[in-house]
């Protein structure tokens, strides 16, 4: 995996307050979810990556450039969508995007062309000609996204890109993130509180709590349960299947809120033969069979609790 961001023993103090302590993190290609409760140090970490704050200790490189001495080069290659509801007063949507492109040293005409292209990609219609002060939250979100990607950055940092969006817009935004990552090969760091978003688009995840990285690994590994299990969806009463499985000495349990689902403890390779046998005996059709995954929420809470225990 290509290392795009490498943080080593990073420490950042604001006066006597330690915002980041001994942060070691590597971010590769694809979409990386950066999770953490409020005050975990996510914003500071982003500012460190963008060279906006000075490091107290440690070393950080982004796209191979040192954040202290080569911040200008980093900013040329990185796009950032901030969380705050910020916009350029007095400008229309297209002018804001054009200005962002011009600041990245694109010629004005090219900047305008890129601006329209990006706003089309973001699903913004004629409202791009309106003053940004008149925009709704969703439109401002799209505008911020457009301003972040107008100069085609290699690394895109998104801070809460889906907050305040309705479900339809949220889905569209996640789609855009997927497209940028999969089709255009853009590396993305997604900083969010909305865990289902991370589960949907991220390839890896890092959890930050109390100014330190509590967990960093591919999402697949994070969600893998400690004991292997299988989720099975059946077409009729699962009790029939449950009874047949018990005859074969295989434990099986139902899932609350999901009437046609059962969970079998064990590896899918080993259990498939028993499962098909029991289903045939019970006369139950199997609609879906997949390895059971841990909930990201559980993982997140566990990581944050570790921090709280450490503090207590």
């Amino acid at each position: 995996m290509t290392e795009l961001v490498r943080l080593e023993h990073l420490q950042k103090n604001y006066g006597s307050f330690c915002a980041l302590q001994d942060v070691n993190l590597t971010v590769g290609e694809g979409v990386t979810g950066l999770l953490g409760p409020n005050g975990a140090g996510k914003s500071t970490l982003i500012k460190v990556m963008l060279g906006l704050v000075r490091l107290t200790a440690g070393k950080a490189t982004v796209l191979g450039h040192d954040v202290v001495t080569e911040s200008r080069l980093i900013r040329e290659k990185v796009g950032f969508m901030p969380e705050d509801d910020c916009y350029m007063h007095g400008l229309s949507g297209i002018e804001s995007v054009q200005m962002a492109a011009c600041l990245s040293c694109l010629p004005p005409v090219e900047a305008l062309r890129r601006g329209h292209e990006i706003l089309d990609f973001c699903g913004m219609g004629q409202e791009r000609y309106r003053n940004v002060e008149t925009y709704s939250t969703g439109m401002r979100q799209k505008l911020r996204f457009a301003m972040a990607i107008v100069h085609s950055p290699q690394l895109l940092i998104l801070d809460e890109p889906t907050s305040g969006l309705d479900p339809e817009e949220r889905e569209a935004m996640l789609n855009r993130i997927r497209v940028l990552s999969k089709r255009f090969g853009m590396a993305i760091i997604l900083c969010t509180h909305i865990l289902p978003d991370v589960q949907v688009v991220c390839d890896s995840v890092a959890i930050l709590a109390g100014g330190a990285v509590r967990l960093s690994s591919p999402l697949q590994d994070v969600l893998a349960p400690s004991e292997p299990a299988i989720f099975v969806q059946v077409d009729r009463d699962p009790h029939l299947l449950q009874a047949e499985l018990q005859k074969l000495n295989q434990s099986c349990s139902e899932i609350e809120d999901k009437p046609n689902f059962v969970v079998l403890d064990g590896d899918i390779q080993e259990l498939s033969e028993k499962l098909w046998q029991a289903a045939h005996a019970a006369g139950v059709g199997i609609l879906k069979m997949s390895p059971a995954l841990s909930s990201l929420e559980d993982v997140f809470i566990k990581a944050v609790m570790e921090d709280q225990h450490a503090h207590s």
């Binding site: 963008l50 906006l52 200008r72 080069l73 900013r75 040329e76 990185v78 950032f80 901030p82 705050d84 509801d85 910020c86 916009y87 350029m88 007063h89 962002a100 600041l103 990245s104 040293c105 301003m147």
Partner: peptide, 21 residues
């Protein structure tokens, strides 16, 4: 102050020479 107030400072600061410009 106006850029900080409107939170647009971060946009300009994250451009290659945004602060200088």
């Amino acid at each position: 102050a106006s850029e900080l107030e409107q939170h647009s400072w971060i946009y300009l600061a994250t451009r290659p020479n945004g602060v200088f410009f």
